[in-house]
Amino acid sequence: MSNVKIVGIERIQKKLKKNVRLDDVKRVVKSNGAEMKQKAKGNAENFKGHYEGKRFVPPTGTLKRSIELAITDKGMTAEVEPHTLYGGYVELGTRKMQAQPYLKPAFDEQKVQFRKDMDKLTR
């Protein structure tokens, strides 16, 4: 979906090599990924539904149920994403439907906690 760049990663990497075991980093990645998944699902509870022509279609919960967490790169990456074809349309909106963001707000909130957790590992 989007790329994230963390500024100052070199300094963190040097500190991590000195002070932290890789298992601790993997634990932080996994726990923050799980928290982000829950936040995204929580955001998905606020969907308003949409119109098909003049007919209002209430949300079914399918998108919320499709949000999953995958741990990749030997535990160094957490991927939270929906497994529906229309997840991006809901997140970003269309010309006929207003955006109803659920992933970006969850990410923006979780990245603050992730940085705090990683900082704790480097002390």
Rank of each mutant, 00 (worst) to 15 (best):
N19Q: 13
P105Q: 04
T84P: 08
A78K: 10
T72K: 13
K41C: 04
A44S: 12
P59F: 08
M76S: 08
K30G: 04
K104T: 10
V7I: 10
G33Q: 03
S66L: 03
F56K: 06
E81H: 10
K41V: 04
Q98T: 15
P58I: 10
R11S: 04
N46R: 12
D24K: 12
A70I: 05
T77N: 05
K74S: 15
A34P: 03
L103S: 06
Q98I: 08
K64G: 11
K15Y: 00
F107E: 07
A78T: 04
S2N: 15
K15I: 02
R123D: 01
K64F: 06
G53Q: 13
T94R: 07
K48D: 07
Y51D: 13
T84V: 09
G93P: 02
F107Y: 15
I9P: 02
V20L: 05
T122P: 06
E52V: 05
R123M: 03
K74I: 07
Y86Q: 11
I12Q: 06
D73K: 13
I9G: 03
L121P: 09
D108P: 04
G93R: 03
N32V: 00
K120W: 02
K111T: 13
F47C: 05
D24E: 13
L92N: 12
K41L: 06
R123K: 11
V4L: 13
K64Y: 05
K5C: 09
I67A: 10
K37D: 08
N43V: 03
K15N: 04
G88A: 06
V7Y: 13
S2L: 13
N19F: 08
E79S: 15
G49W: 15
Y86H: 15
D119I: 01
Q98K: 15
A34L: 04
N46F: 15
K18P: 00
K18N: 00
P82E: 12
D73T: 12
E52P: 03
V28K: 10
E10Q: 07
V90S: 04
L103T: 01
A70Y: 06
T84C: 12
E81P: 05
P101A: 14
P82R: 05
L16M: 07
Q98H: 05
K14G: 01
A44V: 10
K96A: 12
L22W: 02
K37W: 03
Y89V: 02
E91H: 09
T72H: 08
P59K: 11
A70N: 14
G53R: 01
V57M: 14
K39C: 01
T72M: 06
H83R: 08
L63M: 14
G93W: 03
S31D: 05
A44W: 12
F107G: 13
N46C: 07
K17Q: 06
K18A: 09
I6V: 15
F47W: 11
S66V: 01
K116V: 12
G88T: 05
Q113T: 00
G49K: 09
V28N: 06
E109L: 12
P101W: 11
Q113C: 05
Y51R: 14
D119A: 07
T72V: 08
M76G: 00
G49F: 12
K37C: 10
A99M: 07
K37Y: 00
G87W: 02
T94F: 07
F47E: 02
K26C: 05
T122V: 13
R11P: 00
